[in-house]
Simulated assay, not measured.
Amino acid sequence: MGLTNGFNHYLTHGSEFDQHIAHQLLGEEGVDLLRLDGTGYVLEFDVPGPAAIAASNRHFSADEMIERGEVPNMVRDFLKVLSCRAYDPTFWPINQKTDCGLFFSKNVPAEWLLSAVAWQEH
């Protein structure tokens, strides 16, 4: 929900790379022009837990992080939401603007894709 509620500029202006190049070439006007190019889509995937944890820690395995006394970032985010919800039943994670990216070095199976919806700015 962070993507759609907190940092949706990726859906309107493209990747950070696109935004930086547009700014280098044309300044703020170049970044503004990105808004006119195409439609952003929100893709929803059902990624198996072990694959999601592995993909959320690009440089270290979850086991390596645990050995160093760290909690893998996706697990840390989940536990944070779970503990806040246990403390306050009215807590709703949609307002947290949490960001936990996943990096896959190979194509993900097509069957993991649940939906693809064109994003409409509110």
Results as ranks from 00 to 15, higher is better:
residue 39 T to P: 01
residue 105 S to L: 12
residue 14 G to M: 00
residue 70 E to C: 12
residue 11 L to Q: 02
residue 52 A to N: 01
residue 110 A to P: 09
residue 86 A to W: 02
residue 99 D to W: 07
residue 71 V to R: 02
residue 9 H to I: 08
residue 48 P to N: 03
residue 48 P to L: 02
residue 20 H to M: 12
residue 85 R to V: 09
residue 21 I to C: 03
residue 103 F to S: 15
residue 64 E to N: 11
residue 104 F to A: 04
residue 68 R to T: 07
residue 20 H to E: 13
residue 101 G to E: 05
residue 38 G to C: 06
residue 103 F to A: 14
residue 22 A to K: 00
residue 47 V to G: 04
residue 15 S to H: 03
residue 11 L to N: 04
residue 75 V to K: 03
residue 73 N to F: 13
residue 56 S to Y: 05
residue 60 F to A: 14
residue 13 H to G: 02
residue 16 E to C: 12
residue 26 L to W: 15
residue 97 K to T: 05
residue 81 V to M: 10
residue 71 V to Q: 02
residue 99 D to H: 10
residue 43 L to E: 08
residue 39 T to N: 02
residue 56 S to Q: 07
residue 86 A to M: 04
residue 57 N to C: 09
residue 95 N to T: 01
residue 77 D to Q: 08
residue 57 N to G: 07
residue 58 R to Q: 10
residue 11 L to S: 05
residue 104 F to E: 06
residue 109 P to V: 03
residue 90 T to H: 00
residue 53 I to P: 11
residue 31 V to F: 05
residue 5 N to E: 11
residue 52 A to T: 01
residue 75 V to T: 05
residue 111 E to K: 08
residue 86 A to H: 10
residue 24 Q to M: 13
residue 8 N to G: 09
residue 66 I to T: 14
residue 14 G to V: 07
residue 16 E to F: 14
residue 27 G to A: 00
residue 22 A to T: 06
residue 42 V to H: 06
